[in-house]
Amino acid sequence: MSDPFEILGLEPRFKLDLGALEARHRELSRALHPDRYAGGGAAERRQALSRAIEVNDALRVLKDPVRRAQALLARSGLSLEEGREPQAAPAFLMDVLELREELSVAGRAKDGAAVRRLGESIAARESQVLEALALGLAPLEGRDTAPTEPGALRGVSEKLGELRFFQRLLSEVRAIEDELL
């Protein structure tokens, strides 16, 4: 996979300024817009189009924290294979199960306030995981990263797994909130 940080000309970091990311994407998209190449040759137009597609893909990857973390890992020649993540800790799974149970109870009771409270507490836990990930991925940031020892990244894949569970819970919260509207 090509490096989305490089495609967008951004410093490889986990904590990205999303506003700056969008601005950079807009800027590049404008420069690559087909109208600008209307007078150019077919090869030039094709090249601009494929660059525009790359830029769009890179934006999608970097907007999603899970894929952003994977992109940082991939830059350093490390990869977490899909479906081979370590099994989450039982206590964590128990928490997720309980949160989802509370969420479905609140949803069935049409208790919008309770759903919102749950959403807030899940979002707070998600931010904690994001902080932990930023810390864990720090050795991979910057343009010239030295090869890291495998031990330095221990915990990153576990946190990535936890992040996915929280993302999933939050999309459940949004779905229930939409239903209650």
């Binding site: 899909e82 479906g83 993540e85 099994q87 989450a88 039982p90 964590f92 799974l93 128990m94 997720v96 199960l97 989802r100 990535l160 797994g161 936890e162 996915r164 569970f165 993302q167 999933r168 819970l169």
Partner: peptide, 13 residues
């Protein structure tokens, strides 16, 4: 038994 799939966020007891 309590297991989860990180890839999709599913949890199964």
């Amino acid at each position: 038994g309590l297991v989860g799939a990180p890839a999709c966020g599913d949890v199964m007891r």
